[in-house]
């Protein structure tokens, strides 16, 4: 009986840890970031799986984190990605950058270098000329934050 209790306790502990990790990840999107997302989407739901986000898994220096974005789009005059918005859930200001594209881009591919304050979710939203919305996110572990203060 005592052995069972010990195993039970261990399992319970492991379960709790997993729950805590899960809760922590969703908590990385504070209200301001949600408001920023809503501002872009106008409250409509965005489809996931259309945006490829390239970010390091671990960013040692939060001051300059390379980010590249590819959106699955034909980029023709009738159907193109017109806007891409980057939001960092754990930064003092959630807004990072907004890109405005035209069919002249040929491909919906952009890259830049961003600042991240802490281990957080980077959210990328895209809007097409036809009004479709896409959203995907990536978690980045940040060793040294890049916002000073």
């Amino acid at each position: 009986m005592s052995q069972m209790t010990r195993r039970g306790a261990l399992l319970l502990g492991a379960g709790l840890t997993l729950t805590l990790i899960a809760v922590d990840q969703s908590a990385a999107t504070p209200a301001e970031a949600d408001a920023e997302i809503a501002k872009f989407t106008g409250g409509k739901t965005a489809e996931s799986g259309k945006i490829a986000i390239d970010l390091p898994e671990i960013a040692e220096n939060g001051n300059t984190v390379p980010l590249s974005i590819k959106v699955d789009s034909p980029m023709t005059a009738d159907d193109y990605v017109s806007e891409i918005r980057v939001i960092a859930g754990g930064n003092p200001n959630p807004g990072v950058v907004g890109f405005h594209l035209t069919p002249m881009a040929g491909r919906a591919e952009v890259a830049t270098r961003i600042r991240l304050n802490s281990t957080e979710n980077v959210i990328v939203l895209a809007k097409t000329s036809g009004g479709k919305l896409f959203m995907d996110r990536r978690m980045v572990k940040v060793t040294v934050g890049g916002c000073g203060g």
Partner: peptide
């Protein structure tokens, strides 16, 4: 052909790549 609205979370010496 391309425009970006930058916020303080863009790293020093702003770098962009586009097509």
């Amino acid at each position: 052909v391309f425009r970006a609205d930058l916020e303080p979370a863009i790293a020093a010496n702003p770098y962009f790549e586009f097509t």
